[in-house]
Write a protein that binds this DNA or RNA. Structure first.
Length: 530
DNA sequence: TTACAGGTTGGCCGG
DNA sequence: ACCGGCCAACCTGTA
């Protein structure tokens, strides 16, 4: 039987290593590659113009690549649950293929679509290709729970063996008996939208530093992979958060949208490592891909992963609610140049270094402003080109010492941290040019410059640039105490401990009939099964 | 049950 | 440029 296949692109915006697309092509008479502009997304999350642009560029590239295979991309507007029944009938579809997406909205969306497909006698084929492993499989292998430490993940993965090899790119030969019927009005009806159609003002887009698309991704991958020594010596903590051009690959946006297959990336690195001395996880480039796997697995296995409430691994903290602080952070008006420069780079360019994310995330939450990591998560979700549900939620919990990382007494200094790799503040001067005339000595702390010097620099602190929003030395000490208190409350509700000290000396072992049912449920089996 | 090791990326001071 | 120790002391996983 010859099929009429829809291949549904969502993430996985590529032709290489795309097993679901290959499945669509098998015994296929008619191929309909589609992308659905689902109004759920802009309604439920802010999307910056830079990320819209990246997505549209990726779709354009996909369409161009499909043209070379005598096919085209159909961009369809509407809710998937409404779009599919219409398309199934209109195109007489017999098969639907797509790559598995594990995010919560994607899961419920896809469940509905699978049901609709069954009702229309459409065969559905779903393939894992967005992660190195099937994250469900990792969880099963780890006794039904997501690993909470990197070492644990590594142990589990060792038992699963290496990730799968990428599958081949479809060729004209694959498509020789398979057509994509296109009408003259294809672009009018199924074309890729302009930024204007998406309600965006193209004037407001940032510099085109990271053009979207599979072709661009593969070029960039090749470019970086040619730097053999650099690849082999790569240690993430040694890379610089505040270099004038990125100190890392910035392949993350391409991996996020699936313009670049994580397996292709993995095996390319393996090829380079082969026979050479090289760095190892967690700090190596392989290690970075495993971090992604770590958080993806956590996102699948931990309920309410992008929230504090109802999230069993997340410490419940009494974060403040302060819109003024939040706006100042978001808009780069905290008065700490290092923080404000990073937030400016984020807003204008859509990418900041991982350690820069650490600095501003710590500052927003446990370090200085004591605001909820969920607020930071929303801002990153809007502004980052590589905004990725699982990684964003996981890393915000990490940095706020809410989960995974617990040494809350290690606080980043908004002054000292940046100096380690950029003593003279070139990075600050690039993104906050109005500070450029301050002498090096004061570039991280311009409020300490004498008035005459501020005048000479043409920038009065408190007028042209804000005074520090908080005094780091004071608030960070207080916040450590608040974290300590939050952790103490947690141990009361989860374990047998009464008062920290009392329980150690033979207090009652019986867990209190708990306020936190969720935590008990999560904790108990963990303690028993291992 | 209890102890202990280890945790991708802290700051600061002194050598 | 890099080390060690101190600060004060969290968690998870394992034995």
């Amino acid at each position: 039987m010859k099929h009429t296949s829809i291949h549904w692109f969502r993430k996985g915006l590529r032709l290489h290593d795309n097993p679901a697309l290959l499945a669509a092509l098998k015994d296929c008479a008619e191929l309909r590659p589609i992308f659905i502009l689902d109004p759920w997304f802009p309604k439920n999350m802010q999307v910056s113009i830079n990320r819209w642009r990246f997505l549209m560029e990726s779709l354009r590239d996909l369409d161009e690549s499909l043209k070379k295979l005598n096919s085209r991309l159909f961009v369809v507007r509407g809710h998937p649950a409404e779009v599919f029944p219409a398309l199934f009938k209109k195109w007489k579809v017999t098969r639907l293929t797509f790559e598995i997406d594990t995010e919560p909205y994607a899961r419920q969306r896809d469940a509905k679509v699978v049901k609709l497909a069954a009702e229309h006698n459409v065969q559905v084929i779903q393939k894992v290709a967005h992660t190195l492993y099937d994250t469900e499989r990792i969880i099963v292998e780890n006794n039904g729970k997501a690993p909470l430490t990197y070492a644990r993940l590594q142990t589990v993965l060792a038992s699963l063996g290496p990730p799968k090899q990428p599958v081949p790119v479809p060729t004209l030969e694959n498509l020789k008996d398979c057509g994509t019927p296109c009408k003259d009005n294809h672009d009018a009806k199924y074309g890729i939208p302009t930024l204007e159609e998406l309600g965006q003002d193209p004037e407001k887009a940032g510099p085109p530093l990271y053009p979207g698309g599979e072709s661009e991704a593969l070029v960039r991958l090749d470019l970086h992979m040619k730097r053999t020594t650099w690849v082999c010596n790569f240690k993430k903590p040694d890379t610089e958060p505040n270099s004038l051009s990125p100190s890392t690959t910035v392949l993350s946006p391409y991996v996020k949208f699936g313009c670049l297959s994580v397996r292709t990336f993995w095996w390319k690195l393996a090829e380079i490592y082969q026979g050479r001395k090289h760095s190892a996880p967690p700090v190596s480039l392989h290690g970075q891909l495993l971090w992604r796997e770590f958080f993806y697995t956590a996102g699948v296995g931990i309920p309410n992963f992008n929230k504090m409430e109802g999230n069993p691994v997340c410490v419940q903290v009494d974060w403040d609610d302060n819109q003024e602080y939040l706006n100042a952070w978001r808009e780069g008006r905290t008065g700490y140049p290092f923080i404000d420069a990073i937030m400016t780079q984020l807003r204008t360019e859509g990418w900041i270094h991982h350690l820069a994310r650490h600095a501003v995330a710590c500052f927003l939450t446990r370090g200085d402003l004591w605001l909820s990591w969920e607020e930071g998560q929303k801002v990153f979700e809007e502004l980052l080109l590589d905004a990725d549900w699982s990684l964003n939620a996981g890393n915000w919990q990490w940095l706020s010492a809410s989960a995974f990382f617990h040494q809350f007494f290690r606080v980043y200094s908004p002054v000292a941290f940046g100096k380690k790799t950029d003593k003279s503040g070139e990075y600050i001067k690039k993104y906050l040019p109005f500070l450029r005339k301050f002498p090096t000595e004061y570039i991280y702390e311009p409020w300490k410059a004498p008035r005459s010097m501020q005048e000479q620099a043409g920038c009065i602190i408190g007028k042209d640039y804000p005074k520090p929003i908080v005094v780091h030395e004071v608030v960070s000490k207080r916040n450590i105490e608040r974290m300590k208190a939050a952790y103490a409350r947690r141990s009361h509700s989860t374990a047998a401990q009464g008062d920290d000290k009392a329980s150690k000396k033979g207090g009652k072992r019986k867990p209190p009939a708990g306020p936190s049912v969720i935590k008990l449920l999560a904790k108990k089996p963990a303690a028993k099964k291992n």
